[in-house]
Design a binder for these strands. Structure first.
Length: 325
DNA sequence: AAGACGAAAGTGGTTGA
DNA sequence: TCAACAACTTTCGTCTT
């Protein structure tokens, strides 16, 4: 903490604010201004408009040291990498570097190397992955990472899927099920939870299990872990398809508009979201003159041309009817 | 000739008795 | 467990551009 102790005492008399809630202050109680300045030298929060001290004795949450370059920063920092659920011990344990060098960067002698290889690493492994559950978790999480990398999913999905799998382990749901099935299902569940449109097929293709198994495990997880997952909205698919079809932003915009009207006309309920999204994309592509064939869209949307035609027919019929009225 | 259209039969999943 | 059902797929012939 930095600051003049005399000054701190003085302001502590004039203000009841504690360091804990000073961080929550959003606006000045006197003039309502939101232009507040945190002065860590004086440990105060000051209103920039009327000059009143809004909070005092605030805690400086930054580091107490200064660093002028990267090297100094890495030397002075006392915390490690953030916690991650994607590693079975949350990334807390020590990892032995694969460079066989000592702390000074010198190569190890052959004798020392043998020692490092055979003793240190062996015990390191034994300590890190101690029992069967740990081993299971370590294997499963590496599977999740693999599938997630295959599908180039964002890191947040990877973390979410890892948390879901951990929950499943905690509830003892893995017993008697294939790890691959549950890991794939956890990824699919994470995608659904985050509103990322990925199909069961895509997940199945990136893992070793088939679509049916992923689906079964997914339903099992939903039921047992009590998840409430809303069905994917067609609009989420439109964005995905537009990207894959490299359509202009305008086409996507029109497709969204078509979808909104279709929803109002109750054309969307009970229908597969992919089919509707594909049809809306098709209509939009025709309307804008940036025409895509039904087959192109069908291939990307993983539905048949017939389905696109059926949805498209309904859309055109009803929308034209609405317009004519 | 490619793409669009539509009919008919088949498939896999859900629902309710 | 099984039949009924809706949505969707597959296949194939025909029409349009």
């Amino acid at each position: 903490m930095s600051g003049d102790s005399n000054l701190q005492e003085k302001v502590s008399d004039s203000s009841e604010a504690t360091s804990r809630d000073s961080f929550k202050v959003q606006s000045c109680p006197e003039c309502g201004s939101s232009r507040l300045m945190r002065d860590y030298e004086c440990a105060e929060v000051v209103c920039m408009d009327c000059g009143i001290v809004v909070a005092a004795k605030i805690a400086d949450r930054g580091p107490e040291w200064r660093a002028f370059d990267d090297e100094q920063r890495s030397k002075r920092t006392r915390v490690g990498a953030p916690l991650t659920y994607t590693i079975h011990d949350k990334g807390l344990s020590t990892t032995i570097d694969w460079h066989d060098r000592d702390v000074y960067g010198k190569s190890l002698s052959p004798g020392q190397k043998a020692q490092v290889y055979h003793r240190l690493r062996k015990w390191q492994r034994r300590i890190r992955v101690s029992d069967a559950t740990e081993r299971n978790l370590a294997f499963a999480l590496s599977e999740i990472t693999k599938i997630s990398n295959n599908l180039s999913l964002p890191k947040s999905i990877l973390e979410t899927a890892s948390v879901i799998y951990r929950k499943a382990v905690k509830e003892r749901l893995i017993r008697g099920r294939s790890i691959q099935g549950v890991t794939s299902a956890a990824i699919y569940l994470a995608c659904r939870q985050c509103g990322l449109p990925r199909t069961l097929d895509e997940i199945a293709q990136s893992s070793t299990v088939n679509k049916k198994e992923v689906g079964r495990s997914y339903r099992f997880l939903i039921r047992e872990l009590d998840y409430k997952i809303p069905p994917l909205r067609p609009s989420q698919y439109i964005t995905k398809f537009s990207n894959q079809l490299t359509m202009q932003g305008k086409v996507e915009e029109i497709a969204h508009k078509i979808l909104a009207s279709a929803k109002q006309l109750k054309l969307t309920s009970g229908r597969g979201p992919t089919g509707i999204a594909a049809a809306a994309s098709y209509v939009a592509s025709v309307l804008t003159g940036e025409r895509k064939t039904q087959r192109e869209i069908a291939e990307i949307a993983q539905v048949t041309e017939v389905t696109i035609r059926n949805r498209y027919k309904e859309l055109v019929e009803r929308l034209m009817f609405e317009i004519s009225i």
